[in-house]
């Protein structure tokens, strides 16, 4: 059974077709990277996947269960977590509180208002564990809006991981990071348990190709190419898209005859 199955997904805003005929099959444990120029519809795809907007047509299936009609929180409860391209944290709260809120999100205790948080040992433990694992202990008490951008981006990923999702949607986790920080985040993604399926939007193609099992390329609201990184890197159509929108920085020099994958 595939982790995530997207069938003929489409969405239009007014007269504008933001996304059309998108079909994806993402296997359990796969690392799928979605690339494409700005405005290709990548973030729209994520917004449709986690239910922030509704599709005009098509279907989304999570581990065999259709989730197209479910709300965002319902999808999250079924193990679908995401990060945001524009950092979306609880700005006035501390790092610890941010993680705490993410950890308790799917715990039965989240609705309890009779006992204090400290009395839930398992929540506290998980928070400590995440702080240690991500080397955030030194800034645990700091307010999030006082943190450097790099740490905020990191926290963005920790929040999504906190509730142990089955499918993780990462929306440009490396955007705006230094090369050092990019390496750190890439390493962490590579080290993730293979039980977690990862779908990632990424502009940094070097990082993308390092992480990906398979790559889907989008352009103008459609998936135009899909395949293993090596093939995609040399794809002719893709070259054209990237040359039009800018340079395909890390791609090989030659436009090979490898042609379309799949």
């Amino acid at each position: 059974m595939n982790a995530l199955e997207v069938r003929d997904l489409g969405r239009s805003f007014g007269g504008l077709q933001a996304l059309q005929n998108v079909t994806l099959s993402i296997a359990q444990g796969e690392r799928r990277v979605i690339i494409g120029t700005n405005g290709a519809g990548k973030t729209t795809l994520f917004n449709l996947l986690n239910g922030q907007i509704r599709p005009t047509r098509g279907e989304i299936v999570l581990f065999g269960e259709p989730i197209t009609a479910l709300s965002t929180p319902q999808r999250a409860a079924r193990g679908l977590a995401r990060t945001f391209q524009i950092t979306s944290l609880f700005a006035e709260l501390s790092v610890r509180e941010n993680i705490q809120i993410a950890v308790q999100a799917l715990d039965p205790c989240r609705f309890s208002f009779v006992r204090t948080i400290e009395s839930y040992r398992h929540i506290e433990q998980r928070v400590e564990e995440l702080l240690a694992q991500w080397q955030l202990e030194h800034c645990a008490a700091q307010r999030v809006n006082k943190l450097s951008y790099g740490v905020q981006r990191q926290l963005e990923v920790v929040m999504a991981l906190a509730s142990r999702p089955r499918v993780l949607l990462l929306d440009e986790p490396m955007a705006g990071l230094s090369s050092e920080e990019t390496h750190l985040v890439t390493d962490i993604i590579l080290a993730l348990d293979r039980a977690v399926t990862v779908v990632m939007i990424e502009h940094d193609l070097a990082a993308a190709f390092r992480v990906a099992d398979r790559v889907s390329a989008m352009d103008q609201g459609q998936v135009v190419a899909e395949g293993p990184p090596a093939l995609i890197r040399d794809d002719e159509a893709l070259q054209r898209i990237y040359l039009r929108g800018g340079a395909l920085g890390t791609a090989g020099p030659a436009v090979s005859a490898g042609g379309r994958s799949q």
């Binding site: 986690n50 965002t72 945001f84 979306s88 944290l89 700005a91 709260l93 809120i101 999100a105 948080i117």
Partner: peptide, 17 residues
């Protein structure tokens, strides 16, 4: 704690579940 999260960023709270 959840109330504070809603005050700060409701869409993120929904995405968290």
């Amino acid at each position: 704690q959840a109330l504070k999260g809603i005050r700060e960023n409701e869409p993120r709270m929904r995405a968290l579940g």
